[in-house]
């Protein structure tokens, strides 16, 4: 499948999802669906760096929050439509990704991970001390009730997130099959050998951090409009960081399918658990699943089903 065929197929599925949700005519599904889709974007973005290159980013929440706070900033300074904000948020968090990568990626992998943890706290401290975007008190973002042509505002946000999810998946899949993706894989498998064979590892890693950071920021951009009130503790919350890691790990990190499966499964599970049990218990569940999968099934769900799937596909289309 060429990348544009894939994009079309994804869009078709997305349109079907949207109209199915419209048909159910219940705003709750849009609210819940938005969160799940947001995790699809976050998990896919994390996987571009974590799964393809093998560099663990613990600061997903930071990139997400940069996107969200870009929106808050422009909401006050210069109101723009959300698609423009998404783009700006992507640029802002992409630059932050590039900067962090530049500072730490020349070192051993673990340092990058620790630095991303550090980044989250530095940025949170900056935001807490920055009164223009609300400081520690938080900021209200008033959203209009209706949007022309689409209907209620939640539906509009849902549609944007759906488009982002499709975009993120298309990007991830395109990378996987390109020269870039093979370069990433060499870094993941043996960075020293890759370096020795002339792969420009630092450049590739910087591309991955920038891309992954930008996508996370884009996922965060509509968030203030979704939640209506943004405070640092919720934007930088640990759940984002944990979910962004847990979803690809549980789904499988080697292809774009893994994060999608992980995000859909875990995201839906959490929505259900939040409603029926409690939000603390569902976070515990995520933690336990993460540790369990990492120990028992290191290749995730995709790794578990691949043996059967691969055999079937080989018979269907010879290479």
């Amino acid at each position: 499948m060429r990348w544009w065929t894939f994009l079309l197929a994804c869009s078709a599925v997305a349109a079907a999802v949207f109209f199915a949700a419209c048909w159910l005519a219940n705003d709750y599904y849009f609210f819940a669906g938005y969160t799940v889709l947001q995790f699809v974007v976050l998990a896919t973005a994390w996987n571009i760096l974590g799964g393809y290159c093998g560099y663990v980013n613990f600061g997903s929440a930071a990139f997400f929050a940069v996107g969200a706070y870009t929106t808050v900033f422009f909401h006050k300074a210069l109101p723009l439509p959300i698609p423009a904000l998404v783009l700006l948020a992507g640029i802002a968090s992409g630059l932050i990704g590039l900067g962090t990568g530049y500072l730490t990626l020349r070192l051993r992998g673990a340092f990058f991970s620790i630095a991303t943890l550090a980044l989250a706290v530095v940025l949170q401290t900056l935001v807490v001390n920055w009164n223009y975007v609300g400081g520690s008190r938080g900021a209200y973002v008033v959203r209009p009730n209706e949007v022309a042509l689409i209907g209620s505002y939640v539906q509009y946000l849902f549609l944007i997130m759906l488009a982002l999810a499709v975009g993120a998946l298309a990007v991830a899949r395109a990378i996987e099959r390109s020269r870039l993706g093979f370069g990433f894989a060499t870094i993941r498998d043996d960075e020293l050998a890759a370096e020795a064979s002339g792969v420009p590892t630092l450049k590739l890693k910087l591309i991955a951090t920038t891309l992954s950071g930008a996508l996370m920021g884009m996922a965060g951009a509509p968030f203030p409009y979704y939640i209506g009130y943004l405070e640092p503790a919720s934007a930088f919350g640990l759940p984002y960081a944990v979910n962004a890691i847990a979803m690809p790990m549980i789904g499988g990190t080697t292809s774009w399918v893994g994060p999608l499966i992980g995000a859909l499964l875990l995201g839906t599970l959490q929505q259900v658990a939040t409603v029926t049990i409690s939000s603390a218990v569902n976070l515990l569940l995520v933690g336990l699943l993460l540790v369990g999968f990492v120990i028992v099934a290191p290749k995730g769900i995709v790794g578990l089903v691949q043996p059967y799937w691969g055999r079937k596909r080989k018979r269907a289309e010879p290479p």
Binding site: V56, F58, I245, V281, L284, G287, V291, V294, I295, P298
Partner: peptide
């Protein structure tokens, strides 16, 4: 047994400890 013996795989080891951190915190909250 889960990570070191299988070879150098920093990714999963890090995720393992991150998960432990998270589990400890949430258990204490509960």
């Amino acid at each position: 047994h889960s990570f070191e013996k299988r070879g150098p795989e920093a990714l999963r080891g890090l995720a393992f400890f991150f998960g432990l951190l998270f589990i400890t915190e949430v258990t204490l909250i509960l």
